[in-house]
Amino acid sequence: MSRLILIALRMLIWLLLTADPDELNVVIGLAVSLALPLPRRVRSLTPAQLWRALAASLAAVPQAYGEAVQLLLHRKLEESVLHDEPVLPSGRPSSVLVFLDVFRITLTPFTIALGLDDGGRSYRVHHLVFEEDRR
């Protein structure tokens, strides 16, 4: 099921790229998206996990705009800290989930992901805070 979602995403990119809903073109795109290798451990992924991660990434976009306006209005007040954010569910994460999580964290202007820590159990996140919040 989650393989189907990934292949549908690939087909979407192919159709946007060629902009041609011809039959032959669709067949070629389908062949290409089936032939490309899938990421590791995607079979053990339940579709609910994948949908949740995709929805969280999409929901991060308006949140990112809100935070951007906030950050631009309070220019002189910020100070940066490092902290760990345990995000992952139990078990070994799939690379698709890690990709989506990193995307979600880095898209919002207040946080940037810096990589995995603890053998893949938490992300190191760089976080901007206002000085008045720290006091």
Partner: peptide
């Protein structure tokens, strides 16, 4: 802010605003 004296990561935050958003 790229012209200022902030830390590298702070500048990356601002660059994300400018380029992506």
């Amino acid at each position: 802010p790229l012209l200022g004296r902030g830390s590298y990561l702070t500048k990356l935050h601002y660059l994300g605003i400018s380029d992506t958003l």
